[in-house]
Design a protein around this nucleic acid. Structure first.
Length: 494
RNA sequence: GGCCCCUUCGUCUAGCGGCCUAGGAUGCCACCCUUUCAAGGUGGAGACACGGGUUCGAGUCCCGUAGGGGCUACCA
């Protein structure tokens, strides 16, 4: 047993509060969360608000709401607290300052007095910061400080040699130290940069595995050197692949509609957009887990508890992937199909209400079962079954062109509708089975095909050409309402 | 430009040297079922980027090329 095996697994998601929660961040968080759950460890939420300019009020709530909706439980964080708090970096400033200055004292970092203008010049000249303050005479440092000059603290990156580290997903990665810059650790406003802050926190919060997106891979050697300079035991690292736009070009954009999917439609990327589009949290989680990781057994549909029982960061595919959003519709329909009726009904309710329908819950529970195999998203209930919730005053008689079935005209249609009324009235048993038998008989008698008769009734009663099965629909609508609608349709004909 | 990472059907993936005439899923097409739409069933088209090695044997290992992605801030 190695030391690592004994360690408690603690992973974290450390977003910047810059707005609504993006699905890419959730995907990264999800892998860390799954890994923690797999090992019975903890998953921590830490807010990295060290850039005051980018802070967007309300972000922390939006992030927490996203996790709540998805059912990804957080063990420690701003809302839930924990033994290593506070979990918001702006409340831990002193800690970072202490360690930044400690590094200066150790000779591993230095104060840099370069002004914005100087920096701009260096950038214009080609390469980045030229380390002009790295070996400044201590007396000069003192003089500049006494003169009240602003400074940042920069890390002294080794000037030559190589740095390599182990990435759980892709193995060893090696970098030339010459390529790295003397990164800023502490900004002139006293706030730390990500480079310093995350290391100080991950150490103090006893994070065992750092899971973060691949864009951090280039600064991996910098971080490794900082960990070493601080003399702390390093955690393990996993640089996760990222989501690319559906066409495979570029990182998945921050905002909906910024790029076109193959069919020109925009796709959901913000968590609240998934909610608004009518997706189930379990389906979204399942969808995300299938990208870059595979459940095995050639199984695509599984719960998070099943996934976490076998999840391993080492099995994550290192390649970035195009956002396979089309699969979410399929997955969502799978979840809807296998959903418990009460759960489905209560999930459907907000969609209906959002569209302005008054929802009769008892009726919704009866409608839900016949909708299950027909919905891709919760919102589809509006187009498919909104007519169930239009009451006596609202239901509009369908136009003739909707009523007319193949090879049927005004007369035939009217004939079917007229005949239907006494049939329905005479049915002692109004189940869909007996309706089916009765109308099949009618079709035979008047010489129309089943589809023509059934279709006419469907259109009359639902006002739609596409709907749930006609007789099950009428069964739920009830005799009186069915007849009323059929009469409305009949009267709408010339 | 420099550095780093990545590369299996359109897309998401399985494959960790022989089990691969490359499997699953989605999407697409066809047929069956069928009162519409779905669902379901059956079948079909569809991939190891390219070039060199290593090896008895390579989708699997190595190198190069090409392509893609990322980083290159007092942003994360």
């Amino acid at each position: 047993m190695t030391a690592d095996d004994r360690q408690v697994v603690r992973t974290r998601y450390a977003p910047s509060p810059t707005g609504p929660q993006h699905i890419g961040g959730i995907r990264s968080a999800l892998f860390g969360w799954l890994f923690a759950r797999r090992h019975g460890g903890q998953f921590i939420l830490r807010i990295e608000d060290t850039d005051q300019k980018r802070f967007v009020p309300g972000s922390v709530e939006m992030i927490q709401d996203a996790f709540d909706w998805l059912g990804m439980d957080i063990d420690e964080g701003p809302e839930q607290g924990g033994p290593f708090g506070p979990y918001i970096q702006s409340q831990r400033l002193e800690l970072y300052q202490t360690w930044a200055h400690w590094l200066v004292e150790q000779g591993r970092a230095y104060k840099c007095f370069a002004t914005a203008e100087e920096l701009a010049q260096m950038r214009a000249a080609g390469q980045g910061y030229d380390r002009r303050y790295r070996d400044l005479d201590p007396a000069d440092v003192k003089r500049l400080e006494a003169a009240g000059k602003d400074y940042v603290i920069r890390f002294k990156m080794p000037l030559q040699g190589k740095t390599s580290g182990q990435d759980m997903i892709r193995g060893e990665v090696t970098f030339d130290n010459e390529q790295l810059q003397d990164a800023v650790l502490l900004k002139s406003d006293g706030f730390p940069t990500y480079h310093l802050a995350h290391i100080v926190d991950d150490h103090h919060m006893e994070i065992s595995h750092i899971t973060r997106a691949v864009e951090w891979l280039p600064s991996f050697p910098l971080h490794l050197k900082i960990w070493e300079a601080l003399g702390w035991r390093k955690p393990q690292f996993a640089h996760l692949p990222v989501l690319l736009n559906p066409n495979g070009k570029g990182k998945l954009s921050k905002r909906k509609g910024r790029f076109a999917a193959a069919d020109g439609a925009s796709v959901p990327v913000l968590v609240h957009e998934f909610i608004g589009a009518g997706y189930l949290p379990a389906a979204v989680l399942n969808f995300l887990t299938n990208i870059g990781w595979n459940f095995g057994e050639e199984r695509e549909v599984f719960s998070m508890s099943e996934a976490s029982a076998r999840f391993d960061l080492r099995d994550v595919n290192p390649a970035n992937s195009a956002y396979p959003i089309a699969k979410l519709d399929w997955l969502n329909s799978q979840y809807i199909q296998s959903a418990d009726v009460d759960f489905l009904a209560s999930s459907l309710k907000p969609a209906l209400q959002g569209a302005g329908y008054k929802v009769d819950e008892a009726r919704l529970r009866r409608v839900a079962p016949i909708l299950q195999v027909r919905l891709k998203t919760l919102n589809d209930v509006i187009a498919m079954a909104g007519f169930f919730f239009e009451d006596w005053d609202c239901f509009q008689p369908p136009a003739a062109k909707i009523l007319f079935q193949k090879k049927m005209d005004d007369r035939g249609t009217k004939q079917v509708l007229e005949a239907a009324i006494p049939i329905i009235e005479g049915l002692a048993d109004f189940s869909h089975e007996s309706q089916y038998a009765a109308f099949k008989q009618l079709a035979k008698e008047i010489g129309f095909k089943n589809g023509q008769v059934f279709g006419t009734l469907r259109a009359a009663v639902t006002g739609q050409r596409v709907s749930p099965p006609t007789f099950e629909t009428m069964e739920i609508l009830g005799k009186a309402e069915s007849i009323r609608r059929i009469k409305l349709a009949r009267d709408a004909l010339a």
